[in-house]
Design a protein around this nucleic acid. Structure first.
Lengths: 340, 340
DNA sequence: TATTGGCAATCAAGATATGTGAGTGCTAAA
DNA sequence: TTTAGCACTCACATATCTTGATTGCCAATA
């Protein structure tokens, strides 16, 4: 357990280190507290023994460890609405009050805005659609035997796929008949169950008559349904990584950018509570190749009540005090906009 | 005009500098040619005076200038199919022969593959759709007064938009009537002309009866049509910039990554001949903030004969000899796959 | 006349030494 | 329990020296 003075010292060290990215010495602290540097040094030695702080070398100031940040975020952090923050909030409001901006764009705009304001990198994860159900399947004839297959879910998500058949194989009437059967059977089916149901249909209703192009149909369908599973993923401000002193190391930086590009964050960001801010510091992210990154994510809801996420990626030395209320504010605003 | 020996020296310097990223001295050259280092130095002095080469300081070796690269690409470059290239081509073939991979994915895969093989950054630009024409507009009722508007073009491109009306404003029958009118008038209209035509319709046919929700309809339509204009833009391997020694400079690197993120390359890449490789070296790219980048782009065709582009972004010190045939090969393969 | 060997000059980059200052731990006194 | 004082540590900045690759120029050579 930490006493009051130790807490104060830890708080100062975290906030000072966040600001300057330099180890914090006892002298700069004792100016703020009414004690001597020696006292501070004693307390710092204690905090170090307990695993909250570390030194970069034997005569350097102290630097927060993961445990220090974690304690700070949970016990010491108190957000303050400074002048700066108010301006940031105004910028956010401007985006969302602009009625011309489409909903999808509002998300991307929010994403860019956050990375601009915070100088960190942001990721937007679109809503997961696996529990939507099929509402309508249409086949539009483009020309000859070229068709456009349209699949609509109950929430209004749409995926399309170009389909073409060989004339010898099948007539337009037959195709339409198949579509009717599919429509009947698949209507109301959850996307996650389409695959098994589709196989079942194929084995029972259709296989006798349309054996020849069974594979063709099933594959075209699956292609369209696969698209639903793809998560909408949008990254902004990855170049902000470059200005963070902790990512000067070329190797670490490259790994981090690769992770962003390969969408490795999807699992991490999705694995967050659906109703509040989630903060993963350093090793808590589960990323092995990058140890000094923090991922903060907040959920938002779209117009159909589906939940997506908005996440911030930066160094563990992140300005939690500024960033957390900002993210919450934006996620709230975003939900409001999307529900309109 | 350059004599034979000068050409040889320029070629060696470009290729050696591409390989090592170090200034090339006379000694390493005279080993390959059968002349003394002094002779080489004289020739180099000439090439420098003519603007093909430069020194980094008074006693360094020579480095190619833009003019040097340009001359090399146009006059000296001869591609050779080494063992390595053959392997790369095989990898490309593997992707495209895999029938399970969807067409859209093939493009992205190709993009990632190129950046992996070359260690540069790649950008894919989807086809431009402004000269497609409207083929069908559908309105699907999701529930109550919530609709899904679907716009299909003659080439099978689809965009959708959720639309909802207030019950007081309008009845479902009225909405459907409006849709019929729109379908009649807009069918066959080029996307680029939809906006003016839409305004014209509104002013003449509909405004009398449906004045109240005129704006609502027109805005929803425009939203859907705006989406067509958005270029499909996909970047891969931006972290490869980090390993290029010329982008160690934090500022330049940040500018370059920002350019990639903000899609500033669209105009540059689009502004290329539709039938062959385009190479823009250094200032030729027209990018003011980045002076030592080269952009190489090749066109490809999708299944509808529409042209997109595949581009490579790297330092001016690019391995043109390897990269150009590889890009051509992939663009050809990509067109083949998409046409299937 | 074209080519070459030789030589002084140049300069980046690495190695070495030195000083400075911010910071620490420890101890003894208040 | 707190504090002042002191010796010690170590990163960082600065200056100095050394090394080696490379150039330009000039006079000798084929």
């Amino acid at each position: 357990m930490l006493n009051k003075r130790q807490k104060e010292i830890l708080k100062i060290i975290v906030e000072e280190y966040v600001r300057t990215a330099e180890p914090v010495g006892s002298k700069s602290i004792c100016e703020r507290l009414n004690v001597s540097s020696a006292t501070v040094r004693n307390e710092m030695a204690h905090l170090e023994k307990e695993g909250y702080l570390d030194k970069t070398h034997s005569s350097s100031g102290r630097v927060p460890l993961e445990k220090g940040y974690r304690y700070y975020v949970e016990e010491l952090l108190q957000t303050d609405d400074t002048e700066f923050e108010k301006k940031a909030y105004e910028l956010v409001d401007n985006i969302f009050q602009n009625k011309i901006v489409a909903r999808e764009d509002a998300i991307k705009k929010a994403c860019s805005l956050i990375s601009e304001i915070t100088n960190y990198t942001t990721v937007v994860l679109g809503p997961d659609s696996s529990n939507q159900t099929v509402s309508k399947i249409e086949l539009i004839n483009l020309h000859d035997l070229e068709f456009l297959m349209i699949v609509v879910t109950d929430t209004g998500h749409v995926e399309t796929k170009n389909v073409s058949f060989n004339e010898e194989e099948v007539s337009i009437e037959e195709i339409m008949k198949v579509m009717d059967i599919l429509n009947d059977v698949l209507k109301g089916t959850a996307l996650s169950e389409v695959f098994t149901k589709l196989n079942y249909i194929m084995d029972n209703h259709l296989v006798q008559e349309f054996l020849a192009y069974r594979d063709s149909i099933i594959n075209n369908f699956l292609d369209a349904f696969m698209k639903f599973a793809e998560t909408n993923y949008y990254v902004s401000g990855s170049s902000n990584m470059l200005v963070q002193p902790e990512f000067q190391d070329q190797n670490k930086l490259k790994k981090l950018i690769d992770i962003l590009e390969q969408k490795e964050l999807i699992k991490i960001i999705k694995d967050t509570p659906a109703d509040s801010v989630s903060i993963k510091i350093g090793s808590e992210t589960g990323l092995e190749s990058v140890d000094n990154a923090t991922i903060i994510s907040v959920p938002y809801e779209n117009e159909r009540g589906e939940k997506g996420n908005l996440a911030l990626v930066g160094p563990t030395r992140m300005d939690y005090k500024r960033v957390i209320p900002l993210l919450e504010y934006i996620a709230k605003d975003l939900s409001k906009k999307l529900k309109k």
